[in-house]
Amino acid sequence: MFPGLCHGDRVIARPCRADQLRPGDIVLARHPLDEQLLIKRLSKRCADGWWVLGDNPAASTDSRHFGVIPDALVMAVVTAIAPAASRLRPG
C-alpha cells in the first residue's frame, strides 16, 4: 500500500456497510480465499462486491489475483492513519 501506507503504520477504522463506500476508500477486508485480514484501496464497484487494488501495483497482491471482494468480507473503512514511529520526525 506504499505510498498510502507504510509498514508499521496504524489505522483507525470503523465498521461499515460495503455498499456505502466510495472508490478511493481504504478498507480492511477478509481475503476471499484464505480469510487473511487485508488492507486495500477500493478501486471500483462491481455487481458482486468491490474491486480492490494496492497503492503499489508492482508489489501488491489484490483483485488482479483474487478477484472481487464480496461485500460481506469488507469489514471496516479507514478513517485515520497514524504513521509508524519510524516515519515521525523527532520532537
Binding site: M1, F2, L5, H7, V11, L28, H31, L33, D34, Q36, L37, L38, I39, K40, G54, N56, A59, S60, T61, H65, F66
Partner: peptide, 13 residues
C-alpha cells in the same frame, strides 16, 4: 490487529 498490505503469496492461487 495486523492487516496485510502485501506479503508472500497471500493470493492463495
Amino acid at each position: 490487529t495486523q492487516a496485510a498490505a502485501h506479503c508472500d503469496g497471500p493470493c492463495g492461487v
